[in-house]
């Protein structure tokens, strides 16, 4: 019984890690570069979740101060993740610009075709 209880109390972490591993799998196993970047974004988003989850207190409210409420969730992870989201979109944009350049130079965004063309050259 206590094992089930532990599992339910940590269900959020289980899902977060599943998302993380899905991102990792896409990045490693898929050759298409656009899909790789989507995988990278999924990995990033799961890290956001990993940070936000411990900050929640059950029965608390969002950290906007008001005399009507006494218990607030932890504001610190929210701040860190706000920064991370914006940096994340910047890196994804840079990656996609590189993909556009690669596509222009090689005419493809599939990883193995690019390697083949490098070997022939």
């Amino acid at each position: 019984m206590s094992a089930v209880r532990t599992f339910i109390e940590h269900y959020n972490y289980v899902i977060t890690i599943l998302l993380m591993m899905a991102g990792l799998y896409i990045v490693v196993a898929r050759g298409n570069m656009v899909k790789k970047l989507v995988g990278l974004s999924i990995f990033q988003t799961s890290v956001y979740l990993l940070y936000i989850e411990p900050g929640k207190i059950l029965g608390a409210t969002a950290p906007i101060l008001d005399p009507a409420f006494k218990v607030y969730s932890n504001p610190l992870p929210h701040v860190l993740i706000l920064t991370a989201i914006v940096v994340g979109i910047a890196t994804v944009a840079l990656g996609l610009a590189l993909v556009v350049r690669i596509n222009e130079a090689y005419g493809t965004v599939e990883e193995d075709e690019i390697f083949e063309r490098d070997r022939d050259a």
Binding site: S41, T45, Y48, I52, E53, G55, K56, A60, T61, A62, P63, I64, Y72, S73, P77, H78, I81, L82, I85, V86, I89
Partner: peptide, 15 residues
């Protein structure tokens, strides 16, 4: 749901 309203707004607009 996790009380991170600012993060939710940013994720909806940026993500």
């Amino acid at each position: 749901v996790l009380d991170a309203v600012d993060v939710a707004m940013t994720e909806a607009s940026v993500g």
